[in-house]
């Protein structure tokens, strides 16, 4: 990325042009070193032995089962948190009640907890020596070191994502459109589906994407509860770890490249959503200018 064009409107003196050049160069070097280089490394390492070896690493049964488990986990955790996120945002953004600030902080809690501790809490609850451990063993139910544990830990880790996107968005939109719909005779659910939902769809989509990205990529918490049983309780990130520790670098980086591409998709959707937002925002400010 070479800096070829200077900002047109800024009348810059030679000195501040130099300052700009230096600052932009440092920023690009920093970002290049910390963000771009790792990306390049992932794909270089993945393709080290050629495209055939790259493709082959996706077709091993272990990789396929890891992909399957990751998708199952995501498909359960994300909808759960989606329903929660919408409900919490509706209650918090559209109503005034006491203790709202505390509730928002509580929703943010999982962000503050180390992934490892997030995994640990489910071991303490459902592990062999955990609170429900004896009962679960008696009834032959496996949660820890099995899929339910992975789903639970992932749900915990991704708990705040959608709510956090929706709460400020719905707060900024206020309640007047909903009131207008109610005056016109629409019922509660209809008002939600015809008025509220269309207005938050981009924020909702972005929340779902962020939530999914984290659900797919979660490592620490899942690592603690999974038990690392090959072909059974390995998600993609755990599979990467196993391949890496077995010195199958091409395999590890191939799987990593898959997750990297998903990260790109996440960023792309984020950019699109932000663009949509700013367009909405512009229309919104046109509103107030014109009226």
């Amino acid at each position: 990325m070479k800096i070829t064009k200077y900002y047109k409107h800024a009348k810059t003196s030679g000195q501040s042009r130099l300052a700009k050049w230096i600052l932009v160069t440092i920023a690009i070097l920093f970002l290049g070193l910390f963000l771009l280089l790792p990306l390049i490394a992932v794909f270089t390492e993945a393709l080290r032995n050629g495209i055939r070896a790259y493709v082959a690493s996706f077709t091993t049964p272990d990789t396929i089962s890891a992909i399957r488990l990751t998708l199952i986990t995501t498909a359960i955790a994300v909808p759960l948190n989606l329903v929660f996120g919408v409900a919490a945002a509706w209650a918090i953004a559209k109503f005034d009640f006491r203790g709202k600030g505390i509730l928002i902080t509580l929703i943010d809690l999982p962000f503050a907890v180390s992934p490892v501790v997030s995994g640990l809490i489910f071991i303490l609850l459902f592990g062999l020596h955990g609170w429900f451990g004896p009962w679960l063993t008696e009834h032959n139910i496996k949660i820890v070191f099995a899929i339910p544990g992975i789903v639970l830990a992932t749900t915990f880790i991704t708990f705040p994502f959608i709510a956090r996107e929706l709460i400020p968005l719905m707060q900024s939109q206020g309640t007047e459109e909903e009131q207008a719909a109610l005056v016109l005779g629409a019922g509660g659910w209809r008002t939600f589906f015809r008025i509220t939902l269309p207005n938050i769809k981009w924020g909702l989509l972005y929340g779902v994407i962020l939530c999914s990205a984290r659900a797919i990529g979660e490592f620490g918490a899942v690592s603690v509860v999974s038990g690392h049983i090959r072909g059974q309780t390995n998600t993609l990130p755990l599979h990467i770890e196993i391949l890496y520790n077995e010195y199958d670098f091409v395999g590890a980086f191939s799987v990593a490249s898959l997750l990297t591409m998903f990260a790109f998709v996440t960023l792309l959707i984020k950019s699109i959503v932000e663009w949509k937002f700013s367009k909405d925002l512009q229309e919104y400010s046109n509103d107030s200018n014109r009226s």
Partner: peptide, 20 residues
């Protein structure tokens, strides 16, 4: 009566048109 049952027409100060 709920707002919907009163069957009044209400015009909001900032119009509150459904933007979508």
């Amino acid at each position: 009566h709920d707002v919907g049952e009163r069957q009044v027409g209400f015009v909001f100060q900032h119009y509150s048109l459904f933007r979508h």
